[in-house]
Amino acid sequence: MSTIEAKAGSPKRRLGDLVFANLTRAAGLTILLALAGVAVFLTIEGIPAFTAGPEDLKGASSFVVYVWPLLFGTLLAAALALAIAVPLAIGVALTVSHYAPRRIATLIGYLIDLLAAVPSVVYGLWGGLFLGPKLVPLYEWLADHLSFIPFFAGPASTTGRTILTASIVLAIMVLPIVTAISREIFAQTPRLNEEAALALGATRWEMIRLSVFPYARSGIVSAAMLGLGRALGETMAVAMVLSASGVVTFNLISSTNPSTIAANIALTFADATGIQVNALIASGLVLFVITFVVNFAARWIVSRSEVSV
């Protein structure tokens, strides 16, 4: 085909092709450059923080000491969010793919998309003003009855602005992406496998357990990891919901909570000066690397399992 083109086209036409082809290639390169640029610029602006002293790092003796509690909070909040969201998402995805009638399934799909369309700042507003106060009685109950579990050691927060509330909001926010991907994968289970299971007398649950889940396992893992990436980097909902003290604790319901990297940046960036800005950017770099690795791994699993998502 290319030989035909070369012969048929006048030099002018080939110039047009050359320009256009290189234009599109340049656009693709721009994206690669942008991604590299993120890493480069964050590193350049972040470097001064790695050698900064306590006076610039809110009293922390080094950058690692500064970022560790934030990293802890980030991981804790994201892990909790996933623990809540993944089972729910699998349930919803199963409803759509295997339980609900076609028409209802489409409607559910739309509603889940709606959940994804709500801006994060609105989730933050709702979480801070509505959900948090509503959860206070639950936290008090947990602190009264289950305080032997370290997670619920209490004393219960009276405002509801705890890391558990933040995680619940995060869970709602990652639900759509985990659902969407799980749904795709469940729907792609070979029809024959399912029908074979049913023909052997399996109940619907046994069919799902025996033919859908084994097929979808790696897909669910990568869906959860993409959700994890989203939860790690989500900023506003946490910044607006959490009353953060920057401590390291597993107590989920008290008023003294760890902060997260993203929320810490959002809350303090406007007020930061000098090296503090560099420290925030460096913490952003840490976040970038972590989310990059998580997303990278998730996409790798997807591409390896040969299920197109």
């Binding site: 009276t158 405002t159 509801g160």
Partner: peptide, 17 residues
């Protein structure tokens, strides 16, 4: 203890608790 950001955060924390 409970930390609140800025005066308005203090007011809503005390008022909401």
């Amino acid at each position: 203890g409970e930390g609140a950001n800025q005066t308005s955060g203090m007011i809503s924390a005390v008022g909401g608790g």
